[in-house]
Amino acid sequence: MTRRLGYLSLGAALVVAILSVAARTAAVEWPGVVGIPTTLVVVKLLTAAAVALGAHGLYLVVVDTVERRSRSKRRLHDLRNVLRLAFGAAALVGVFGALTEQWLGVLFSLGVVGFAVTFALQQPLFSLLGWVYILVKRPYQVGDRVRIESAKGDVIDVDFLVTTLWEINGELVSSNQPSGRIVTVPNSVVLSSEVFNYSWDEFPFVWNEISIQVAYETDLAFARSEMVDVADELLGDEMRRNVERYREVLAETAVEMEVQDRPTVNVVQGESWVELRLRYLTHPRRGQRVKNELYERILERFNDHPDRVAFPVSRNR
């Protein structure tokens, strides 16, 4: 459909260009408008329209070709924005050049106007620079789950000026659940604030924890073993494969770190209980679902052994 519209636009551009040539060579002299020959006005308008239609049609054809060959929706989104900016700028120069017939003068004027706009519209300019930074450095891209300042969500669009997020958490819900709201963040924010990416291409997984409080009378070795076994049953082979990938990513950096390929349990001493924190690897979009499943299975195991696992009397955990 996009390619067909592109060809139609190119065809219309050709027809308008022919009309422009015909109007230029016509022997008919129409009355002038405010001292400007009507024939000249018509020719310039037709030429400008031909340039605009041709740029639009060529853009649609190129985008359709790229879409057919691209295998990554993320790369396609960025490339489409670059093409839109390039063809838009070219069409703008072409239209003004056709209207004024002063191509160098148009480029110089646009340069002067751009210099003035730099001072008048600093924030949009910074956002445009932020878009270029996002495009080049890739702190995030469409489909990633990120936190930018106080906004957290899944990136659904990165435009020239703003990044649009499908909100996670927020004021309406918790536990990393979508709220249904859309959040727009100026691209300029990435130039001055921290950006947290939870699902970047190289390693789209995060370490997560689930904590359970038990009484001091608990057999800690048994409780820790049960928690690890439950996590192994649920995550086992998948986690080991992901840890291997994690090690490969670490090997490409200067960071030296020992990484366990099985879930681990850390013990934290509280005032009237012991907190057992199960650490495991999971995908951020499955984080809460995995946490719920682990919690239910662990409590079931613990309740099956009341003689070895005791909970704080206050149940304040």
Rank of each mutant, 00 (worst) to 15 (best):
Y280M: 02
V33S: 12
R277W: 01
A98G: 08
V195D: 01
W207M: 09
V183Y: 01
S127P: 06
R285V: 05
V16T: 04
L58C: 08
F311I: 04
S109M: 10
A221W: 10
E202S: 12
L83F: 06
N303Q: 07
W131T: 01
P312Q: 07
R84A: 15
L8T: 07
G57F: 01
K44S: 13
E233W: 11
T163W: 01
V42Q: 06
S72M: 06
Q260K: 12
L220C: 06
G32N: 10
N292D: 14
R74D: 10
G6M: 01
D157M: 06
W30Y: 14
G11M: 02
E275I: 04
E209P: 05
F96A: 10
T100C: 07
F126S: 08
S314G: 09
L191F: 13
L220T: 02
V290N: 09
R3H: 04
V206E: 03
S211Y: 15
N81D: 07
D154R: 11
V173M: 04
D229W: 12
E252W: 07
H77L: 03
P37A: 13
R145H: 07
P306C: 09
R74L: 11
E258P: 08
F302Y: 07
N292K: 09
D261I: 06
A215G: 15
A116V: 14
W207E: 15
L107E: 11
I36D: 09
A120C: 08
R68A: 14
P284C: 13
A254E: 15
L161F: 08
L161K: 05
G270T: 05
A49T: 12
A22G: 09
E275C: 06
T163F: 02
V255M: 09
S192D: 12
A254L: 08
V249I: 14
V255F: 12
R289F: 15
V63M: 09
T253K: 12
A91P: 03
S314L: 12
A50L: 09
A23D: 05
S314T: 09
S127C: 11
V93I: 15
G170L: 00
V117D: 08
L299P: 02
A151S: 13
R68H: 12
V62A: 15
I298W: 03
G6F: 00
R240G: 05
A23T: 03
V162I: 10
L104K: 05
R74Y: 04
R308G: 04
F119E: 04
T264M: 05
L235K: 03
R224H: 03
T2G: 13
E194P: 02
R286S: 14
A55N: 02
V206P: 00
V136D: 06
Y295N: 10
G54A: 14
G57S: 06
Q269A: 14
L8H: 09
S193D: 11
R277D: 05
L110N: 02
S225V: 10
A13P: 01
R84S: 15
V28M: 13
V162L: 11
V173F: 03
L46F: 08
D78T: 14
S272D: 14
P306K: 08
G35D: 10
R247D: 09
V189K: 05
V16H: 00
W103S: 09
T282R: 00
V183H: 02
L294H: 01
